[in-house]
């Protein structure tokens, strides 16, 4: 029922026609199909296909080879004269540009690293400077403080000495006054009792008495 062929069709038609009497029912259908195939193939035959496999139709080989060589030559000329140098140049340019860009990027990176190092250095310097200033300030303040304390100490000592001196003076004057008062009182007492005060004796007596009380 399925005819896979075209070129065997004419021969097959003959055979089936001969076979028909042996098997009329099947033969008729086969003959019909084959005839159709044969008719269909007749057109192809007319178009120049002598064998079933057009690949093996040697009469067309010359034609194919000729045009193939022409086409290959055309492609070769197009590619080798125009396309390949152009593409090669584009790729080369791009490669060059990329290399340059990469170098520039590397350069920038190096610069950035340098800037970072400089910044770090500046930071460390600033930090050291600040430490130094703090230390200097501290020393200065300490010195000032020491001076101030010494001054205050001296003042306090002076004041204390002054006070002591005054106290001693006061005590001295108080003792003298007390002796004078005691002498005068003693002399007065003596005169009052009718005696004649002996100044020297009174003084000695008062002094000996006072010695224990005042001093």
């Amino acid at each position: 029922m399925f005819s896979l062929l075209q070129q065997t069709a004419p021969a097959a038609v003959d055979q089936t026609i001969i076979v028909v009497p042996a098997d009329p029912a099947a033969g008729v259908v086969v003959a019909e199909t084959e005839t159709v195939v044969a008719a269909g193939h007749a057109a192809a035959d007319a178009a120049g296909s002598a064998v079933g496999m057009p690949q093996l139709d040697f009469s067309t080989f010359g034609n194919q080879i000729f045009w193939l060589v022409v086409a290959l030559a055309a492609i070769y000329l197009i590619l080798s004269r125009v396309a390949l140098p152009r593409i090669g140049r584009i790729l080369g340019d791009r490669q060059g540009l990329m290399t340059a860009d990469l170098a520039a990027a590397e350069d920038f990176k190096r610069k950035a690293r340098e800037a970072e190092a400089a910044y770090d250095r500046a930071l460390a310097e600033a930090r050291a400077e600040a430490g130094k200033i703090v230390a200097a300030n501290k020393a200065e303040i300490d010195a000032e403080l020491k001076v101030a304390i010494a001054k205050a100490d001296a003042e306090i000592a002076a004041r204390a000495a002054e006070s002591e001196r005054r106290i001693a003076e006061i005590r001295e004057s108080a003792a003298t006054d007390a002796r004078n008062v005691a002498r005068e009182v003693a002399a007065e007492l003596v005169s009052t009792f009718g005696g004649r005060p002996d100044t020297a004796a009174v003084d000695a007596a008062v002094d000996s008495r006072i010695k224990g009380a005042v001093q």
Binding site: M1, S3, L4, T33, V36, G40, A44, A47, S49, M53
Partner: peptide, 11 residues
């Protein structure tokens, strides 16, 4: 029936 012409495209 089916008609096969697998080789006609190469003519």
């Amino acid at each position: 029936g089916l008609v096969f012409h697998p080789m006609d495209q190469f003519i």
